[in-house]
Design a protein around this nucleic acid. Structure first.
Lengths: 339, 339
DNA sequence: TACTTTAATGTTAACGTTAACATTATTATA
DNA sequence: TATAATAATGTTAACGTTAACATTAAAGTA
């Protein structure tokens, strides 16, 4: 940072006090309009750019929101960020972006950074490998307003905004059941992550409600990525022919993409041999050779609602801790065997 | 920001000076190891979190890099951000993300914000609608190290990292020429943006080198988005049958997607009736019903190289202004009529 | 032991801004 | 005109940290 023009220099140029410069520039009343004009003109002429850092220190407010993203290349997150950004822009907040890369340690690092940077609030979607919630409590203890989005941690006193995971999972599993599939497997996410648990729960509930037996063999952990989906599906395909599932519900679309590859690799067809459905409506889902039946998660909406809630917490002590659930929609394409 | 524990409180707790606390915590030498341990223990016990804002003000350095992104949902950008993030994380910098939404005014706003936040450097990819480069000069005048990535502005003394746009455009146009197509159109980007100009230039050069006539009628501005691609293609399809192009090179993949929709809508086939190629290798390109032949832009690499250069400028006065060009690769799929 | 070197700690000022209070200039009122 | 009210400007301190210099304590050296 080279030495920049400060309010002091503007003041000296005009032989007035720094405070008058500050007032003129921030538009407070009780400033002679001629003084104000002179200040504005001089500030422009000298190339004065207010120093937000100093302002933040003085006012104990940074007008900045920290966002923790587990994996920026998952199409859900750029969409969510757009929702976040739209709101923060009009509300006058800025964004510090941190990336946990699905890694618990990096996530902790990110949160510490955000705390040190004195962000006014934090938006976080937990990383896949997180098993220890202490760091979240630390943040809560620091009284930094925090809202979880999409992948939430409940019961630690933070608001969260998520989609109706359990219900969506149940809905799409039931869709498979309606196709008369009996042997339905689930590629599940890490159970340390809310959406992993909830989608599994929805799957189980659907089976139960329709009197289908639940079998541990039909639940294989895939994680949230394509390679995990491939490996998990491979495991299912290794089952003896008789036990092989007839349909699969993957915890998210990338995992489903991997699973599809594994199925094709064995020379099997979708949905003729095995039907498959996903969750999240990745932008690629409808473009696949066999378009994927899935659950649409309104990512933009999740991001938007989450910041709105967060800004509520920041600006209003009384704002209630909430759990906001956004509805999902089932998108029926070819991979389930409907049409 | 509620009142947090400060170094002062840690110092008072131990009856020592703030400076000793600061030294112990920042690992400077000349601190008694027993004192150091006590300080660290007390800091942890009291829940001390160093205040980066105060530190930034004192040191005139924020360890923060500002990134301006034109459209976060374009798959190029999340990839580029990952490249950026990987480098900044290990180098100890943080990221402020700003979104111009392809809008010149918002871009200006973003740059002003970044200047006010006293970022150590700026990474920017210009918005589609920018026609006035004054704001960039303002930033240069403030001596904020700046590197352009992907969409660059040359000749204002900033380094830039881009792909070999002209060469890539030429290469893929020539690929069409090799297929014996004569009537080749181009859906071009805004000419105010470097990549718009360069890709058009590559297209022209390819025609020229192969003695094909260039016609203004075959260049239609589409912008960078799907809807623009659709409209531009529609315009081409409105030409009398005799004049209708046999092949199309779109400025980027989203524009190509829109164009494909327009072609299908008229009941025409790709590549039988019209061949089409794009640029950028969007994650969706290979999944389309007719997979798109395109130019792969190594987004991760562009991001990575750009921050590396930027950090060079930040940490080393002598760092040379550079134009770094990254090679592209042609990805041949079905839409050009190859196989 | 007296003196020098070095290690450990302390003090002051600065980074650039704003809030709170203090002062001065201007205008309105009796 | 004298006095009160108000508008305009100024002064001081604070936000939390670190660099630079100052001091004191401890350890070597002659």
């Amino acid at each position: 940072m080279s030495k920049r023009v400060t309010a002091k220099q503007v003041a000296e140029e005009l032989n007035i006090s720094i405070m008058t410069v500050s007032r003129a520039l921030s538009g407070s009343p009780n400033v002679d309009h001629r003084t104000k004009e002179k200040v504005i003109e001089t500030a422009r002429r000298l190339g004065y750019v207010p120093n937000q850092i100093a302002k933040s220190l003085a006012l104990q407010k940074t007008d900045t929101i920290g966002v923790v993203v587990p994996e920026i290349t998952h199409s859900f997150f750029p969409e969510a960020i757009r929702g976040i950004e739209k709101v923060t822009y009009s509300a006058g907040y800025h964004l510090i972006l941190t990336h946990s890369a699905e890694n618990a340690e990096r996530e902790m690092d990110a949160l510490k950074t955000l705390a040190a940077k004195r962000v006014d609030g934090i938006l976080i979607s937990t990383a896949e490998s997180v098993t220890d919630y202490d760091i979240y409590s630390d943040i809560m203890n620091l009284k930094i307003p925090t809202v979880f989005y999409d992948r939430c941690v409940m019961g630690i006193g933070a608001s969260c905004v998520c989609v109706n995971d359990k219900h969506g999972a149940k809905k799409i599993t039931e869709h498979l059941i309606e196709h008369k599939y009996k042997k339905i497997a689930h590629l599940c996410g890490p159970l340390s992550v809310s959406i992993g648990r909830l989608r599994l729960a929805g799957y189980k509930k659907a089976l139960q409600d329709h009197n289908l037996v639940f079998s541990e063999d039909y639940v294989v952990e895939s994680g949230f990525h394509e390679d995990g989906g491939f490996r998990a599906m491979d495991k299912l395909l290794d089952l003896p022919e008789k036990k092989r599932p007839r349909a699969v519900f993957a915890v998210n679309d990338p995992a489903a993409f991997g699973a599809m590859k594994a199925i094709f690799k064995r020379g099997l067809s979708i949905p003729q041999d095995i039907a498959i459905v996903g969750f999240s409506d990745d932008i690629r889902a409808e473009l696949l050779p066999v378009p994927l039946t899935t659950i649409r998660q309104p990512a933009f909406e999740v991001g938007k609602k989450a910041v709105e809630k967060l800004i509520g917490h920041i600006e209003n002590e009384e704002e209630k801790i909430d759990k906001i659930v956004i509805d999902t929609e089932i998108i029926i394409r070819k991979s389930c065997g409907c049409n």
